[in-house]
Amino acid sequence: MPSAGVAAALLDKENVGVPAGKSMDGKLAGKRPLGDGADGGAAKLPRKSALQPLSANVLGVQQTAAGPAPPPSFSDNTKPGAMGPPPPRVATSSRPASGAEASGASRERSASGAAMVRRWQLTDFDIGKPLGRGKFGNVYLARERKSKFIVALKVLFKNQLQQSNVEHQLRREIEIQSHLRHPNILRLYGYFYDHTRVYLILEYAARGELYKELQRAGSFDERRTATYVASLAKALTYCHAKHVIHRDIKPENLLLGLNGDLKIADFGWSVHAPNSRRKTLCGTLDYLPPEMVEGNYHDAAVDVWSLGVLCYEFLYGQPPFEAAGHSETYKRILRVDLRFPPTPERSDGAKDLIKQLLVKDPKERLPLGQVLQHPWIQAHADPAVLARAT
């Protein structure tokens, strides 16, 4: 259950209008289409919008020759010369704090040792170039003025969130992502808001979107793919240990850090599920597991299926069950109609791992711990990633 402070972030409904004719659809139309639809003659929706997730915003960097150089390092301290995370603050509110909020602020003051904890506001940041656009707002490069720490500031428009009825998803996304600490998960440092916008303070992923890297390269070699799959297996193991199911693993939701390390960036469809059983149809068409397509209950095994689809797409440049229309895609998923094209040529070990992940029965899918022990992963993944404790 989200805390009172998080839940308050979207309750202020004053001045929610924007100028007439403004559209926040951004660059969603630029996402890769899945071909001409076979259902009623309509064109098939772009993959990003097949089942509209909350965080349609692009969090990555659009690299330009004239753009600023990436920051030298990110650390978790604030020693002189270091670029540690922004100091802790609490969300801005125009109403009196509730008991729960006051208690939370008191704990934060105690933890930081400060006599007073200031609330975040836009004037605390120097705003740089736009990093991306989405349906609900924009993302900007920003620098916290006091610590000089570089972040990505995600700006969401309240009226767009309210019109799409996704305020509850944003609360859940903030609640989940702010509690996750893993090298392959993008940090959410904090949030604040005003009458018209909600601002998320996010870790800056200097090398941008993995999806764009995949588009440029066409496909990844086996070493790079195995390293990414190992990193994701570790991150998802961490999430599942905390009873968090991501439910929307795909290239569009992955970013690359300064050193090329993978970061899960979007938790718009994630859920905290201690009982591990849900029935919501959510995610993205090409990555839906059979149990979701059939309308059955699902658990953390949906992320294992998505990892298999992702591994296939990295190696071959397209998802395994892609088809002309929604109905045919659903049919291929239900049949687990898995085919390996002759080019690019891939090893039997890579194909074996994919076959063990893309199994119709969720209980029969290869556990994430065994993914890391798979011979193909052991032979090809970066040893530094495999040696890492988490």
Rank of each mutant, 00 (worst) to 15 (best):
M1F: 15
A9S: 14
N15K: 09
G26M: 12
G30P: 06
R32M: 09
L34Y: 05
L34G: 14
G37F: 08
G41Q: 14
G41K: 14
A43N: 08
A43L: 13
L45Y: 09
L51F: 15
V61S: 07
Q62G: 05
P70F: 13
P71N: 09
D76N: 12
N77D: 15
K79I: 03
K79R: 11
P80G: 11
G81I: 14
G84Y: 12
P88S: 10
R89H: 02
R89P: 00
S98G: 15
S98W: 13
E101Y: 04
A102F: 02
S106C: 08
R107D: 08
E108S: 09
A111T: 10
A114E: 06
M116D: 13
Q121Y: 01
Q121M: 05
D126K: 10
D126A: 13
K129Q: 11
L131Y: 04
R133K: 03
F136T: 01
G137F: 09
A142Q: 05
E144L: 11
R145G: 07
S147Y: 04
K148N: 15
V151G: 01
A152D: 04
L153D: 02
L156D: 06
F157H: 15
K158P: 04
N159A: 01
L161G: 09
N165K: 15
I176Y: 04
R181D: 14
H182M: 05
P183K: 06
N184T: 07
I185M: 06
L188S: 02
Y191N: 08
Y191E: 07
Y193W: 05
V198A: 12
V198I: 15
Y199C: 12
E203V: 00
E203H: 04
Y204A: 04
A206C: 13
R207H: 13
G218A: 11
F220Y: 07
R223W: 05
V229W: 12
V229Y: 11
V229P: 08
K234H: 02
Y238A: 11
D248E: 02
P251E: 15
L258C: 07
G260Y: 14
I264L: 03
G268H: 00
R277C: 12
R277P: 07
R278L: 15
T284R: 11
D286P: 00
L288N: 00
M292D: 00
E294R: 14
V309G: 10
V309F: 12
F314M: 11
P319L: 09
S327N: 11
E328S: 01
E328F: 00
I333V: 14
V336M: 14
L338D: 14
F340K: 08
D352G: 13
I354P: 10
K355P: 05
D361M: 08
P362E: 02
P362K: 10
L366D: 04
L366W: 00
Q370G: 14
Q373S: 10
I377D: 06
Q378F: 03
H380V: 13
A381N: 07
D382R: 01
P383D: 09
L386T: 03
A389R: 13
A389W: 08
